[in-house]
Design a protein around this nucleic acid. Structure first.
Length: 864
RNA sequence: GCGGACGUGGUGAAACCGGUAGACACGACAGACUUAAAAUCUGUUUCGCAUGCGCGAGUGCGGGUUCGAGUCCCGCCGUCCGCACCA
């Protein structure tokens, strides 16, 4: 039926992208063109784009991300790889609960409706996904498997429970995420947020800290900056633990330091506000308790900490210096010491640490320099407003005197170990991953709390633990906890009355293993081991830089944990990673605030006014598209007015993938015009050129032969630029070929044949970018079968190398002329013709060149 | 503060190994077609001077290495990103 429409005159000439795109999407589906099965006989390639959160509609960042992935998937498929290219939904999360509270929609219904909408939008883009492998993380057939994983991690000692601080909103009676705390207050209630200790589940990611760090160096196909960010996040520090006796108490104060070389410059100790010693003292000291409470209030927001001055509270206790008899170091509770790092206690050496110096000046503590800068003199050197953190030799330090910093660290470590005052130690910035969330719309944590037996895992046979549907929102607290019956159960161990865990998993849990689930949607296991062995690791992962640390690090950890529990045979989930840049747009505002792009119009003189009122609009800088600045473009509107192929082409055209892309109306129109031109050229050619498969004519004009060289050079250039991820260059090469084909003569011997050949090649090259129009034009040119099934073209080495090359002639490195010579001419011949160029002779001015450098086929430089 | 990336026409950019800077586009200008506009097609478009071929300058700024530097090295300026009272 569709073919008959295509055959009628009107639509033959006009590029009717709606009809074309709908037709090919149907055909691909009917043919199962993107369905994939494991095939050990063929090399595999797994392309994965980060799956979206179903927020309601796709945004332009998705369009870019998925266009990039589809190009890679289709290109690799054309090269003969067995390509796995799946898509799914990261479907648990806070926005669904917000919708429930704000609009009274059940999170499940809201989520599933959003998925339906967004799936339709993605289908409209013509992406080559195997939709039979679609996964949705909020479905019990997905999350049951991660409940099992958690129980396996529990067995392996990789999951444990301990108390941890959370942001507590006392009005809503609920835990807040950091992003829900704004200026120290709950985002909805406006109440001052408190810190509360709750028992929570953790995954022992720190057990793999060393391994995760070491392996980042092997991730060769990852962007350097992502590796660096992970490196910094894991944050390995080598140093020493030092135990200071505390005067008048039995316990010692344990301190971690990386500057044990400066121990003789210590003048105080400081502990974190929630250090056990501080808590102990605060119980009998209301003023200290007040200070501790104050520190707890500010510690969530980094900006707040930054602005805060360094403050402390003198506990009255003193620590005894391990090597200086009688030297007493006052112990402060200080707002700049973190309980989460090291031991939550430091010794302060003001002369060689800027924070310690500021603290010492504020509290009038001694500043004794122990590192002498290279050209300073021991008698005159003193610390002013800036601590000395550079190199130098140690002095004022007894057995360390005269040593370098590194030498002193080594000597001090030895002495600490010999005397029992301390030991070498390595500390990590990385902390264990807290996975408990006090929320409804997440995967239930499959354990039961029994008053007699304690924490008891839910037996495998009772999995999955599913969420109840009948929950109430809008009331304070966690709906699961409030539910009248759900949490009440019996203990699997003793049979007595018990309660379910009402916390759910952090949603990073689901995204930490979804890539493996795509390999095989098994019912009775998370994924089949054989399928995982065939497909994993992901060959190319593509997504936003915002996931550079957490999601990617958690997935790397999960893969190791799954290996330990016998699920997998690999360590690293993503062999190649590409982080794409953001999509940006100009911003507009008038007196009333930010304006949407479709509320403004650009006049012929370049000024911008509002569409309705004609009032002037201020054009702001180009920024990442965001709802708050209203500089957003709706992909659906773009696809409706230009088509998916145009949107895809523009996404690839102007900037390389890792760089930010500026969305412009002019840019999308340029892409649209190009596809229209291509359409017209091919449809018109189809009427005059010899049919597809006609034998190559015996006689071919010189122009047509030149065109053939151009065609083969384009095949090479597009292939190489795609391999190098320079898709903007690939588009440029294709457009160059288009220009050459449009300008080529058709009447001479073999010319029409060659132009048809050129367009057939061009369609094969452009198929990964704009697949619908490529398929349609391929068919109209009489191409055999679906273009999807046609292999990537190869080029002829002979045709790619020019017979005649142009060589630059320089005098003293400056361009003075150009000569043409047969490729690979002898140096002598090139030298001779260079000297004959009249302009060159002018510059030589009769002088004999002192030296002549010949770079074959490129350049001759005459030095005088 | 620490770490990193980047800086090329009016704009997005290209130049892969040090070898003819500005491919391909967008925009602008001129012309063709048209009663007219849009669309389409053709041409010009780094800057300055000449405007005929030419001459000079030019890849953030200053220096260096080299026959030759957008590319390598040193110093500076600027923009963006990440991390951070991390002991």
């Amino acid at each position: 039926m569709a073919d008959q429409t295509a055959a009628n005159g009107e639509s033959t000439i006009r590029y009717d992208f709606r009809a074309v795109e709908a037709r090919w999407q149907q055909r691909w589906e009917a043919a199962g063109a993107f369905t994939v099965v494991e095939d050990p006989a063929r090399p595999k390639y797994y392309v994965l784009e980060m799956f979206p959160y179903p927020s309601g509609r796709i945004h332009i960042g998705h369009v870019r991300n998925y266009t990039l992935g589809d190009l890679v998937a289709r290109y690799k498929h054309a090269l003969g790889f067995n390509v796995l290219h799946p898509m799914g939904w990261d479907a648990f999360g806070l926005p669904a609960e917000n919708a429930a509270i704000e609009r009274g929609v059940h999170p499940a219904r809201w989520t599933w409706e959003n998925i339906a909408t967004m799936r339709g939008q993605l289908r409209g883009m013509g992406l080559s996904y195997d939709w039979q492998r679609e996964i949705t993380t909020c479905a019990p057939d997905y999350y049951r498997h991660e409940q099992k994983m958690f129980l396996d991690f529990l067995d392996a000692g990789l999951a444990y429970r301990r108390e941890s601080w959370v942001n507590w909103d006392p009005v809503e009676d609920t835990v807040l995420a950091n992003e829900q705390v704004i200026d120290g207050r709950g985002w909805r209630s406006g109440a001052l947020v408190e810190k509360r200790l709750l028992s929570q589940w953790f995954l022992r990611i720190t057990a793999y800290a060393e391994d995760l760090l070491a392996a980042t160096a092997q991730l060769e196909r990852w962007p350097e900056r992502v590796r660096l960010m992970q490196h910094n996040w894991i944050g390995r520090s080598e140093g020493a633990l030092i135990r200071f006796p505390v005067s008048g108490r039995d316990e010692t104060l344990e301190v971690f330091t990386t500057r044990h070389d400066t121990l003789f410059g210590a003048s105080f100790c400081a502990i974190a506000a929630n250090h056990p010693l501080a808590a102990d003292l605060a119980a009998r000291d209301p003023e200290l308790a007040g200070f501790v409470a104050e520190c707890n209030r500010m510690s969530t927001s980094e900006a707040e900490i930054e602005r805060a001055e360094k403050r402390g509270y003198d506990t009255g206790l003193v620590a005894l210096h391990p090597f200086v008899d009688g030297l007493e170091l006052p112990i402060y509770v200080a707002n700049f010491v973190l309980m989460e790092y090291g031991t939550g206690a430091i010794f302060g050496c003001p002369a060689h640490d800027q924070r310690d110096l500021e603290f010492a000046r504020a509290y009038d503590l001694p500043v004794l320099p122990v590192v002498l800068p290279p050209d300073a003199d021991a008698g005159g050197f003193a610390i002013g407003d800036e601590a000395w953190t550079g190199p130098g030799s140690i002095y004022n330090s007894r057995f360390l005197d005269g040593l370098s910093i590194d030498g002193a660290k080594e000597a001090m470590s030895l002495r600490l170990e010999q005397t029992g005052h301390g030991a070498r130690s390595v500390t990590w910035r990385l902390r264990d991953w807290g996975v408990s969330r006090q929320r409804y719309w997440g995967c239930p944590i499959p354990v039961i709390h029994c008053p007699a037996c304690g924490v008891v895992p839910v037996p495998d046979s009772d999995l999955p633990v599913t969420l109840p549907d009948d929950v109430e929102f809008g009331e304070p607290g966690n709906p699961l906890d409030r539910h009248p019956t759900w949490k009440h159960t019996s203990c699997p161990a003793c049979g007595g009355a018990a309660t379910r865990e009402t916390d759910t998993f952090d949603t990073f849990f689901e995204s930490s293993w979804y890539f493996a689930r795509f390999c095989d949607l098994a019912e009775d296991s998370a994924f089949g081991r054989e399928a995982a062995r065939y497909w994993l690791p992901v060959d190319q992962y593509i997504g936003g830089i915002e996931h550079a640390v957490l999601h990617l690090l958690y997935s790397r950890f999960f893969t190791r944990a799954l290996r330990r529990s016998g699920y997998l045979d690999i360590d690293e989930p993503f062999a190649g990673l590409m982080t794409q840049g953001m999509v940006c747009h100009e911003t507009y505002r008038d007196g009333s605030g930010w304006l949407f792009p479709d509320q403004v119009r650009r006049q012929s003189d370049g000024t911008v006014v509002t569409v309705d009122g004609g009032t002037p609009v201020e054009v702001g800088r180009v920024e990442k598209m965001s709802k708050s600045r209203r500089n957003v473009i709706d992909p659906e509107a773009i696809i409706a007015s230009y088509g998916a192929d145009t949107a895809r082409l523009f996404m690839l055209s102007d900037s390389p993938p890792e760089r930010d892309l500026e969305w412009t109306e002019a840019g999308i129109e340029g892409a649209f015009r190009y596809l229209n031109r291509l359409w017209r050229s091919v449809v018109e050619l189809a009427c005059v050129a010899p049919p597809h498969g006609s034998p190559r004519p015996g006689r071919i004009s010189a122009e047509a032969q030149e065109l053939e060289r151009r065609i083969h050079k384009t095949i090479r250039a597009v292939g190489e630029s795609v391999e190098r991820w320079r898709f903007n260059s690939s588009v440029a090469f294709i457009r160059e070929l288009s220009n050459a084909l449009a300008a080529a003569p058709l009447s001479g011997p073999g010319e029409a044949w060659m132009v048809r050949h050129g367009y057939e090649i061009l369609l094969r090259l452009i198929e990964p970018m704009t697949p619908h129009i490529a398929e349609e034009l391929w068919e109209r040119l009489g191409g055999e079968g679906m273009l999807r099934l046609v292999a990537w073209p190869s080029f002829d080495e002979e045709l790619v190398a020019d017979e005649l090359v142009s060589i630059a002639v320089q005098v003293n490195g400056r361009l003075r002329g150009t000569i043409h010579a047969p490729r690979d001419s002898s140096e002598e011949a090139v030298r001779q013709s260079a000297l004959e160029v009249s302009n060159v002779q002018r510059y030589l001015d009769g002088a004999e060149p002192r030296r002549i450098i010949v770079v074959p086929n490129r350049v001759v430089n005459l030095v005088v």
